[in-house]
Every structure is written in structure tokens, then in C-alpha cells.
């Protein structure tokens, strides 16, 4: 009982801090917080796929797809912001299900390679369609909410809140059992009645949707992007590292991972003038070595049955 009340107090405090943060800080911290929340969305979305044992590099592709679809529909078709986001999500759902079906037979490293190839193909498409995407020169949109960072913060916090709600549902419903079973053996799970195809596709599609939303937010927030940035593999790799170091298969883990790593990265960037990435990398290696289960260390007990 005591343990639970402490947990709720911590969650409530974090939620309150998240809401008031932009009002008590300046532009620099607001900007940093916005990027951190965006990475929290990406890390959580990466974890959604990981829960069904999918090691995906397709998140880069969905991030770029979200960015470009919403930017292009906003600019060329004059869609309002919410509609451009909606179109991006719908397109992402179609693409994710199609890619999910095509890669159904692949697992482990083979799935990872296929998802990597997907992201690379989208990069090439973005480069080769200059009439639509602006090609290598990139694309520019007017700044989001007239550049009012408080509103931008509110939007990305809302997207993260949505991702957290989805994640909590996955953790507390039959999805959790299906994913845990499938991680040990998809065949045994299917013999016991689990429609493994459905759960694999759901996890992949949900995961794609939130990467897409992060990408759509990103392009409007930064007002400009080029294919090499929107389809940069670092996005997918960073999401993966944050999820793993925070703690896989949980809601707190990836969010915490994103916050901690983003703060460390920024601190090092500011204080270590040369080669901060090397030290950052060493830190990541140490993290993986000493915290194999991440910051939270998953307690994969089934909460309802305790």
C-alpha cells in the first residue's frame, strides 16, 4: 500500500511539473524540453514494436513520412494543421500494415534489415521527387503557432500523453499477455489461441503512428527539413538506445530514458567543447553493461493476478 502511494505521488508530481514547466522557464529550456518530449514519444513508440519482439529501424522512415506528408499537405494542398497531421497518420497506418504484412515471416536481424531498407527507400523517394518534396533542398513551412513555444510544448506534451495512455492500455490488457507469450514463442502462443499476426501488426502500426506524429510535429516546429535530416537513421537509433537504457517493455522506462539521455547529452554538448559524442558513447556502453534491464529494471509480473 505504502509503495503504491509513493508511486502515485511521484507520477502526480511529474505530471504537474510537465504541465507548469514551460511557464516557469525561459526559451532555451522550453526548446530543450520540447525536443526531449519528442524523443520520449519516439522512444515509447520504439518500445511498442519491441514488445512484439520487433527490432525496428523503420521508425526513421515513419518519422520522415510523417514530417513530409504533413508538410506537403499543409503547403501544397493548404490543409489546416490538424488535417495535415491526420492525413500523415492515415498514410502511415496503410504503409505500416503493408510493410508489416510483407515482413511477417521475418524475425530478429532479418526484420531489422528489412526495416532499415524501408527507411532508406523512403529517403531515396524523398530525394527523387523534387516537385513534391523539394528534393535535396528540403521543404519549409511557416512556424508552428506563430513560433509560440508554449503552445508547441503543449502539443508535443499532448502527443506524449496520448502515447502514454496507449502504452498503459497495452500494459494492462490482454495485449500484455499476448506480447509476453509471443516473445518466448510465437508458435506456442498461436497454439494457445493467440492471433499472432494481429498482435504483431497492431504493435508495429501503433509504433509507426507515434513516430509519424513525432515527425509531423518536428517539421512544423523547426519549420524546415531536408531528406537527410527527416530520414536520418540517428533518429531510429536514438529512440532505440533511449528505450533500452530506460527499460524495455514498460511505459516509464522509455520516457525516463529519453529525459535522462537528452539531459546528459545536452549537458555534455555545452560543457565539453570537443568530442562530447565520444564520452556520451562511452556512457551508453557503460549503461548497457551495468544496467542490462535499463533504468527501471522490468518487473514483468502480471499485475492483475497478484
Amino acid at each position: 500500500m505504502k509503495k503504491y502511494s509513493l508511486k502515485y505521488i511521484l507520477v502526480a508530481a511529474a505530471a504537474i511539473l510537465a504541465v507548469i514547466f514551460p511557464f516557469i522557464t525561459g526559451e532555451y529550456y522550453r526548446h530543450l524540453a520540447i525536443l526531449t518530449l519528442m524523443y520520449a514519444v519516439l522512444a515509447l513508440s520504439w518500445d511498442f514494436a519491441a514488445r512484439a519482439e520487433l527490432v525496428s529501424f523503420a521508425h526513421t522512415g515513419f518519422f520522415g513520412l510523417g514530417a513530409y506528408t504533413s508538410a506537403v499537405t499543409f503547403l501544397k494542398l493548404d490543409f489546416p494543421l490538424y488535417l495535415s497531421f491526420t492525413v500523415a497518420v492515415l498514410l502511415t497506418i496503410v504503409v505500416a500494415i503493408a510493410l508489416g504484412y510483407l515482413t511477417l515471416r521475418l524475425s530478429g536481424i532479418y526484420f531489422a534489415i528489412a526495416s532499415l531498407a524501408f527507411s532508406e527507400v523512403l529517403l531515396v523517394v524523398a530525394l527523387q521527387l523534387p516537385k513534391v518534396t523539394g528534393g535535396a533542398m528540403g521543404i519549409s513551412v511557416p512556424s508552428l503557432f506563430g513560433g509560440m513555444r508554449v503552445y508547441c510544448y503543449g502539443l508535443i506534451l499532448g502527443i506524449l500523453a496520448l502515447a502514454v495512455v496507449v502504452s498503459l492500455y497495452l500494459e494492462r490488457s490482454h495485449f500484455h499477455l499476448a506480447f509476453s507469450a509471443m516473445r518466448t514463442s510465437p508458435s506456442v502462443a498461436s497454439v494457445l489461441g493467440v492471433n499472432t499476426v494481429r498482435y504483431r501488426l497492431s504493435s508495429f502500426t501503433l509504433s509507426a503512428i507515434f513516430s509519424c506524429l513525432a515527425g509531423a510535429f518536428y517539421v512544423h516546429y523547426t519549420t524546415t527539413t531536408i531528406p537527410y535530416e527527416a530520414f536520418n537513421l540517428n533518429i531510429g537509433v536514438a529512440s532505440m538506445v533511449m528505450a533500452v537504457l530506460g527499460g524495455l517493455y514498460s511505459t516509464v522506462g522509455p520516457v525516463l530514458g529519453a529525459i535522462v539521455l537528452k539531459i546528459i547529452e545536452e549537458y555534455m554538448r555545452v560543457t565539453i567543447p570537443y568530442g562530447y559524442m565520444i564520452i556520451y558513447g562511452l556512457l551508453l556502453v557503460a549503461g548497457i553493461l551495468f544496467l542490462p534491464k535499463g533504468l527501471v529494471g522490468v518487473q514483468n509480473k502480471w499485475k492483475f493476478l497478484k
Binding site: H174, L177, A178, S180, R183, G193, L305
Partner: peptide, 25 residues
């Protein structure tokens, strides 16, 4: 066995998914 789940969790997988519509755990 599903090694990430307890004995009860293992049986619950079958109980939840043994029908055409999964029930709440």
C-alpha cells in the same frame, strides 16, 4: 513455458485467448 510469465500468467494466456474473442485478463 512462457518464461517471462508466472505459472498463473502462463495459464491466463490460454484462458484469455482460447476463445474467438479475447477476454479481459
Amino acid at each position: 513455458p512462457f518464461k517471462e510469465l508466472t505459472v498463473l500468467g502462463n495459464v491466463a494466456v490460454a484462458a484469455v485467448f482460447g476463445h474467438s474473442k479475447p477476454v479481459h485478463p
